[in-house]
Simulated scan of single mutants.
Amino acid sequence: MRRKWPLRNIILSSLWTLSTLESYRDVAERFQTSKSVICDHLHEFCALIVEHFPDKIAWPKGAEAEASAAGFSLAGLPGTLCAVGSCHVPIDKPQGVPVPEAYLNGKMFYSVNLMAFCDHAGRFVHVSAEHPGGWHNSQVFRATEVGRALERDPHALLQGRHLAGDATFPLSEHLLTPFPDFGNLAARKGRYNRRILATLQAVRGAFRALHARFRRVKSLQMHSVAKTSTAVRACCILHNVCLENNNPVLLDDTDCDTVSQEPFHLLPNGHSGSLGGISKRQDIAASLSKKRPQDVM
């Protein structure tokens, strides 16, 4: 009741700002207000979305976990609960952080690493968007709540299943990654790698849909890491709401900001994987048929 600007305008202008790449000044002109009003209410809107709808991003349990594992089995990798991946969210040089240069990534722009875990349908089940873009994915993974939970009690988190990630993540019995490919992979290893790639399409597709729905993710123009993280999380929540309501998105040529990284096993402190992970990967590769389950009639 104390607001000078109608709540309807706040919601519509915030959604418009997140959905387009119009400059903040142009958005202000569209809604007949000032740039500062648009920016202030955008921060407020995102904070309220994150505060009031945290349950829209939830780790799969029970029936949801069963459905996700079944969905990934159709992609050809049995026992997978979630796929993990990352992209970079550009930011202005951050303020109020101990080492701003840590946010300078391999492509030489400042960013935060958006690391996301998705179920088979491309729904975000956990996101982290506050760690520096200069960090390697393996370092970001260890710092996420999921990474810490895996160290404490992997069974409680995964219920005997595993995650799937690309070669930038450390191989373990709880996180499966591709076989290193030097051009002479055995047929079963190549088949396994193709199944991993098909599994990872869930998280890559989620990133594409997120950027298509909320183009502002590519140009938030914020100096605050905390505000950037809140805005990105709000967009991920709204993405999940769109999936719940079967609201389709028109995918286009919009690219996610990815940064090439060394495979984990080639890092100075890297390794080829835990013994349990190496054994589990070999066993799954040996068990895979030449055809994916959905190809067998």
Rank of each mutant, 00 (worst) to 15 (best):
P94A: 03
P154G: 09
L42C: 14
L176N: 11
R25K: 07
R25L: 03
N105E: 09
E22L: 08
D295K: 14
A129F: 11
R215N: 08
M222S: 11
S128H: 12
K189H: 09
D181S: 02
H174W: 06
Q159R: 11
H271D: 07
F53V: 08
I196L: 11
A28G: 11
Q261C: 04
T33R: 07
P98Q: 13
K290Q: 14
A206D: 12
G76P: 12
F109P: 08
A70S: 04
A209E: 15
F31W: 13
S128T: 14
R148H: 04
C87T: 14
A102S: 13
H174D: 00
L7K: 14
R8A: 09
E29F: 10
E29C: 13
Q159F: 00
A143E: 00
E29Y: 12
L74T: 15
D253E: 02
P54S: 07
A198Y: 12
G147V: 06
M297H: 12
G165Y: 05
C235R: 05
G277W: 05
A286V: 00
P268A: 01
E66V: 05
D40Y: 06
L7Q: 10
G205F: 15
G85T: 01
D40T: 09
L157E: 00
I278W: 01
Y192A: 01
N269H: 06
